[in-house]
């Protein structure tokens, strides 16, 4: 993808062009024996930008997401992240402690299934407050206050703060998971099919909420989805994957309105005509 594309996208989103990308992925490859998970993927992600990775299941998009987010060690290739001090660091060369600290402060990860991203047996308040406590916040009242504030931002009533997520609906759980990730005001959030498994009406509400939060907070997001409507609503840019490789990349509107690769054309025509 060209820088020109990117700059155009940013201009469109009203964001002044930053000097340097937040995340730089180069030639990222992960193989399982002879099978390819993802191969030779490179892209830059700029601060405040939302990138969608789309493809059918088995296309390697989740493998790619896990490799970028340091949850799965790639076979080769690099991932550089620009830390808050402006220095770009290879996330696979960091000490484990530093990487894990990054993951729970400056990054977020929203799982498709909220059970994977929540502690189901502790209260909603503690779920949201955990990251604050992990970084040393030791004032119960402040932690609880922040939790209530974040619950409100994801449209969960204050009086549910002491309830366990077991008692929440699927949509509420997903919103709680999002609040839990955003409480430390990360700069980069990874999302794996964040609306998968939800009813259509619940999906729409969640997407609205996400869109608002992303623009309010200026979040950079890498979102994996098989749902082109999600990509259309959330992302500035998208890459299309097939059999582990990127077959098309560009501004979301351009890719969806004028798909170039035959596979993308097929994908778009099969879904958007509904």
């Amino acid at each position: 993808m060209s820088d020109a594309d990117t700059l155009e996208a940013l201009a469109k989103a009203g964001i002044p062009a930053p000097v340097k990308p937040l995340l730089t992925v180069e030639k990222l490859t992960r193989v399982y024996g002879k099978r390819i998970g993802c191969a030779d993927v490179s892209f830059d992600l700029w601060p405040g930008e939302v990138l969608a990775i789309v493809g059918e299941s088995g296309s390697g998009k989740t493998t790619l997401l896990n490799c970028i987010s340091s949850r799965l060690t790639p076979t080769c290739g690099t991932v550089h992240y620009r830390m808050r001090d402006g220095v770009s660091a290879d996330i696979y060369k960091m000490a484990e402690a530093e990487r894990r600290y990054l993951m729970r402060t400056d990054w977020g990860f929203v799982h498709q299934n909220p059970i994977d991203g929540l502690r189901m047996t502790v209260s909603a308040g503690a779920n949201v407050g955990e990251r604050l406590m992990a970084v040393g916040n030791r004032h119960y009242g402040n932690i609880r206050g922040a939790a209530i504030e974040w619950l409100a931002r994801v449209e969960i009533d204050e009086d549910r703060v002491d309830d366990q997520p077991r008692t929440f609906s699927g949509g509420m759980r997903q919103r709680l998971q999002i609040a839990r990730n955003l409480v430390t005001e990360p700069r980069l959030v990874f999302m794996d099919e964040p609306t998968g498994g939800l009813d259509v009406s619940v999906q729409a509400r969640l997407l609205d909420l996400l869109r608002g939060l992303v623009s309010d907070l200026g979040l950079a997001v890498v979102v994996v989805t098989h749902d082109l409507a999600v990509a259309r609503l959330l992302s500035d840019r998208m890459i299309v994957m097939k059999e582990g490789r990127v077959i098309e990349a560009g501004l979301t509107d351009r890719v969806l309105d004028d798909p170039r690769a035959p596979y993308t054309q097929l994908l778009v025509s099969s879904i958007l005509q509904v």
Binding site: E96, R119, A134
Partner: peptide, 19 residues
């Protein structure tokens, strides 16, 4: 312990107070 990740310990104390 190795990574000094003790947030969970305070989650437990938080739950105590909340409950």
């Amino acid at each position: 312990h190795a990574l000094e990740e003790y947030g969970l310990m305070h989650v437990k104390l938080y739950e105590d107070i909340a409950r």
